[in-house]
Amino acid sequence: MAETSTSGASLPELVPKASFIEDVSEHLQGASVDDALNELRGAHQKYKYIEQEIVQRKQRLAFKQPEIEKCLASVKLLAAQKEEGTEAVLDFALSDQVFAKARLANVEAVNLWLGAGVMLEYSLPDAQQLLETQLAGCSRQLSIVQEEHDYIKDQITTTEVSACREVSMARVYNYGVSQRRTASA
């Protein structure tokens, strides 16, 4: 159930920051515009790829959260009904669209599916506690992923802006060249 973030190291440690180009004309000196643009394009592609992965992780977590909330709601309701001493009467799904009626009296424990083919029995308070811990872990993960998304988004925007600046600088340069050509002709 627990999902580890990129092997302990934070994303800025793993993924280099897109460097900001202070002076584009200086940056383009000695190198061809095409090479410079290709370099940016490559970096942009890598960042985009990482972003995709982050977005997927985010979606997985966002999907997991309501699942845990659902489990928690059931456990809490069972606990409340046990407290009141009422017998739980419910329709439970036998298969997707087939429901059967069940009466549950004196529910002491539930089985939690832990994943990887393992199911464990927990007393109601223990189950509730475990699920609450899971839920807290989930939202903690979500905020980490959010930070990672912010970071990668910054790098993407920086590369995009740099590419625009190089292109526009190249235009100005070409314009200068053609100006000189017409002048000398």
Partner: peptide
Amino acid sequence: EEVPYLVGECFFH
């Protein structure tokens, strides 16, 4: 007097 109410995957009465 009783209604089925969806909690989790089950309808509790």
